[in-house]
Simulated assay, not measured.
Amino acid sequence: MSVDREPRQLPAPAFEEYTGFLLHRLGIGAQRVIEETLRPLDLRPREFRVLALLGDTPRSQRELAELSRLDRTTMVAVVDRLEDLELVRRTRNATDRRKYLVERTAAGASLVGDAMVKLIKAEREFLSPLPEDRQTELNALLRELYAVRIVDC
């Protein structure tokens, strides 16, 4: 006669060893580093994301919302602030006069370059406890997970 038993469970790790907890806490730390790095440039992380995604190609606010994973209301506020800072400009779409295209200004492009240099340096410092090959491995694992678990933010 067979007896159904639950599989033997391994002892649970301490709460602070759970992957989700670690990702959450490190995410908060990384967010703070990003905010502190961008603050002297008068940029917020969302604004930087939009500026960086714009590249040299004018895009509609809707496209930018989809690319950046920001909701449309947030996108309007981000583009408004970037426009106030003269980092982007809105122009009428030549093929659909009801829509506007957003494009980076020269000042916006320059600021993205400066911000990237600072962010790369800050990231290296944040990850410095890991050897370079482990940093590369971590990045690859995170990109792989991100590809299937994209989160709106």
Rank of each mutant, 00 (worst) to 15 (best):
L23T: 09
R97V: 11
F21A: 01
I28W: 13
L70C: 05
G20F: 12
T73R: 04
G29W: 15
R98Y: 15
R25W: 14
P13I: 04
G113Q: 15
A77V: 08
A14P: 06
G113N: 15
P11Y: 05
S68C: 03
D114A: 10
H24V: 08
N93P: 06
M116N: 09
E16T: 15
F48A: 00
E47M: 05
L23F: 11
S68F: 04
L87E: 00
L38R: 08
P13W: 11
A14K: 14
P13M: 02
P40H: 03
R46P: 05
R44P: 05
F21M: 02
A52V: 09
E137N: 07
D42S: 12
K118M: 09
V50Q: 05
T136K: 14
I34W: 10
A65L: 01
S110P: 03
D133R: 13
D133Y: 12
V88D: 01
R97K: 12
L101D: 10
R69C: 01
L111S: 02
I28P: 00
G113C: 11
G108I: 10
V112A: 03
I28F: 11
R44M: 12
P11R: 04
L85E: 06
L130M: 09
D71T: 07
L64I: 04
R124G: 00
S60M: 11
R49T: 08
G29F: 15
P40Q: 02
V78G: 08
E16D: 15
E63W: 05
P11C: 00
P129S: 08
L119D: 02
